[in-house]
Amino acid sequence: MTTPAPESRAIDAPEVAAYWAERRRYLERIRKVPEIRQRFWREVAVYLLRRLLWSFGFFPVFIAFWVPFVLASFNPVVMASDLIPLLQEFVNSNPEVQATTISTLVIAWASIGFFFLVFDFVLTPFRSPYQYEADVYMRSWEQLNHDQLPDKV
């Protein structure tokens, strides 16, 4: 047998709806402000550039140097002595083998980059300046309407 909901629960729904309605109205208003729109596009560009540089610049390069360094037991002399014959073999090979090796390295670099890019987008989602502005506004709106709002808004 279920117990009836307390009366305060029945009153909370309109107040919560008022909170989200006010947030929606505020977001509609600030979307028309050119400075915030410009800041939004600048932050989108910086976010995408940062994600791309991090995923295609740092991780593939880090893995390309870290894995051989670990396999060489953190000894750069062993790593160099293992890599020098491979580099000499690459330089002395015919152009077709060199092209195949380079394309394999590019495919490996791109696959590592795309792998980390997907997880980077998931782990660090974009935070819109519109949402930030709305959060700040709604905190002040909550303080002004504190006595009218439920406890968990």
Rank of each mutant, 00 (worst) to 15 (best):
Q38L: 14
F115E: 00
E96L: 13
R127W: 08
A64K: 00
P14V: 08
Y137R: 07
P85H: 03
T100I: 08
D147I: 14
R9P: 05
E35A: 10
R9C: 06
F90H: 04
R23Q: 07
A110E: 10
M138D: 03
A134E: 03
E28M: 11
F74H: 08
F40G: 03
F90E: 04
N145L: 07
L144F: 12
N75S: 09
V33R: 08
T3W: 12
K152A: 11
G113L: 05
V91E: 15
E96N: 13
F90C: 05
R51P: 01
D151Q: 12
Q131W: 14
V97G: 06
I11H: 15
A80E: 06
V77I: 15
A13F: 07
P68A: 02
V78Q: 09
E35P: 07
F65D: 00
Y26A: 02
V70F: 06
L86H: 05
M1L: 10
P68N: 01
R31M: 07
F115N: 00
W141A: 05
V106W: 03
S93L: 08
F121K: 03
I112K: 01
V77A: 14
P4A: 12
N75Y: 06
W20Y: 13
Y19T: 03
L123W: 11
G57P: 00
H146M: 09
T100R: 15
I30M: 05
I30F: 04
T100W: 13
D120H: 03
I30S: 05
S55K: 00
M138Q: 01
P95W: 14
D135I: 12
E142A: 10
Q38T: 09
F90W: 06
Y130E: 02
E133P: 04
